[in-house]
Design a binder for these strands. Structure first.
Length: 485
RNA sequence: GGCGAUGUGGGUGAGUGGUCUAAGCCAAGGGUCUGCAAAACUCUUUAUCACAAGUUCGAAUCUUGUCAUCGCCUCCA
């Protein structure tokens, strides 16, 4: 059994082997923290979360680094434009650090709710200015970068193979399409900034050998990736839109500095669209996660994301979310039945399902197939439970173990109940369950006396007023939250 | 204009040479179960895979062309 990953660099699926046995180094481009996270962030980080989880379950130790960009990305690259974080700071009448901290916390809140595991290391760009300066110095010394008026640029011509990731290798053709900034000090218009001199109004700036300024926008990932993971890493992930120029620039500056391959496997996840059009902050059509969570269980969002492949576009609509919610409930229902089932004698073999699940995950993290396997498993379990002889305890434990591993540990779509209980506190949950049990008992008595008016009243009012659904099964009545609430 | 990708049933979404008379989910309809529901199970309905040509014994799957859509080429997950 071996894992295959689609490598954006070679544009093929390649068998994955880490550089160092048992130990995977992985870096994923983190968010620029100047606003709340949206559905696009969710897709990206949920996807890579599953990658990390699966690698770990495959027996690897994964060192997962995901940066926080709290400086440097400008609204424009023609030596103009504003730092977006500074811009937001002036909008909110505060300083950049507060903006960065505020939205960093907001980001993690949202990711936690989506069940995204925290990275092992989450370095902030502003905390690694010396490392970035060091990297620039290496590039200047080796002749790959040059300084003009306090600005330092990377010379694209000095690096063979620039643009190999995106396929944009013909720089002359490229340049004809680029607006050449009149005030730019660049030798070639496709050269990119490593260090920029700050003007007086600029809020975030640091001393450097060249000027008081700030680092260019591709530099932090290279510097921090090298610091924490080494000069060659196994996996680098990010959004499709970052292939060019961001990742091509990263490759150029890193490999020019070290002479070693920077990244072995490049992974790019696709975009979220709304009505077929990309969701983006700058397009003002992004779906804010905090807003979304008000109406939709974060786990439904996670499930919705994983129902399509990470390299496919995901089109958002309320109908699609609703369909996902119904589907996920179905899986949760089976899980519940399994938990509550009385001992039977039937044997259930979940090995074929487990094998197919693993095959799907090993094939470039094919979560839609993996989920389809869970649905088929669910159907088979339900059918078995409907039989008179049920499922024997031993078999049941095995199935539960698999479901726990696949649904909870790998995909992270099965732990909602536990999380809710933790959040509410054990004491109140226990009391609530006792009350529900009493209600069910009263209703059972009413039914025994054929007082259906009363029993239906209990059932209907619970559903309408509290979103609690009662179901009469062979094993007696049970209740569950009707989600959507 | 350049680079990259996609086009599969009512919706969604897998499938990259034969097991595809195309998975799974949602939606629709019939049945079993039930006091009635719900849930579950079961059956059924809607696809020859954008279009055209080609390669092959054989293609949704490879090649070429056409059309359409999307992303990148300014920050963006």
């Amino acid at each position: 059994m071996s894992l295959f990953i689609y490598n954006s660099l070679s544009r093929t699926k390649e068998q994955f082997e880490p550089l160092h046995p048992e130990m995977v180094s992985m870096y994923v481009c983190g968010p620029t923290v100047y606003g709340h996270a949206h559905l696009g962030h969710a897709k990206s980080y949920v996807s890579f979360d599953v990658v990390v989880r699966w690698l770990r379950q495959s027996g690897y130790r994964v060192k997962y680094v995901q940066n926080i960009t709290d400086v440097g990305h400008l609204t424009d690259d023609a030596d103009e434009g504003e730092d977006k974080i500074s811009k937001q700071a002036s909008l909110e009448k505060t300083d950049p650090m507060e903006i960065a901290q505020f939205y960093t916390r907001s980001f993690y809140e949202d990711m936690d709710r989506l069940g995204v595991l925290r990275p092992n290391i989450a370095p902030a760009a502003t905390a690694h200015i010396p490392e970035q300066i060091d990297l620039i110095e290496r590039l200047v010394k080796s002749g790959h970068a040059y300084e003009v008026n306090g600005n330092v640029y990377f010379s694209v011509k000095s690096f063979d193979g620039y643009g190999k990731l995106s396929g944009r290798t013909d720089q002359d053709a490229l340049q004809s399409g680029i607006r050449v900034g009149i005030r730019s000090d660049k030798r070639e218009s496709s050269d990119f900034a490593l260090w920029k001199k700050a003007d007086e109004r600029h809020l975030m700036k640091w001393n450097s050998p060249w000027s008081v300024g700030y680092p260019g926008w591709h530099l932090e990932c290279s510097a921090m990736s090298m610091k924490y993971l080494g000069e060659s890493i196994d996996i680098h992930g990010g959004g499709m839109e970052n292939k060019f120029p961001h990742h091509d620039c990263e490759i150029a500056q890193s490999e020019a500095a070290t002479g070693k391959p920077y990244v072995r496997f490049w992974m790019h996840n696709n975009m979220v669209t709304i009505n077929g059009i990309k969701m983006g902050k700058s397009l003002n059509n992004s779906v804010n996660l905090k807003d979304l969570f008000r109406e939709t269980d974060p786990l439904v969002i996670r499930f919705f994301i994983l129902q399509s492949h990470y390299r496919s576009q995901l089109d958002y609509s309320e109908t699609a979310i609703k369909a996902s919610r119904t589907g996920l409930e179905k899986l949760h229902e089976t899980q519940r039945r399994l938990r509550e089932q009385k001992d039977g004698t039937g044997v259930f073999d979940c090995e074929p399902f487990a094998r197919r699940f693993t095959e799907a995950m090993d094939d470039d993290f094919n979560t839609p197939i993996a989920i389809a396997v869970l649905f088929e498993l669910s159907k088979a379990i339900n059918a078995a439970l409907d039989q008179h002889n049920g499922i024997a305890d031993g078999s049941c434990k095995e199935v539960q173990a698999f479901i726990n591993q696949a649904g909870k540990e790998t995909l992270g779509i099965f732990d909602q109940n536990d999380r809710d209980k933790n959040r509410e506190g054990k004491e109140s949950t226990r009391k609530f369950e006792a009350v529900m049990e009493l209600l069910l008992q009263l209703r059972a008595e009413a039914r025994e006396q054929k007082d259906f008016a009363l029993s239906d009243k209990i059932r209907d009012l619970l559903l309408i007023k509290s979103g609690i659904e009662i179901k009469d099964t062979k094993e007696g009545a049970s209740w569950s939250w009707k989600s959507g609430a």
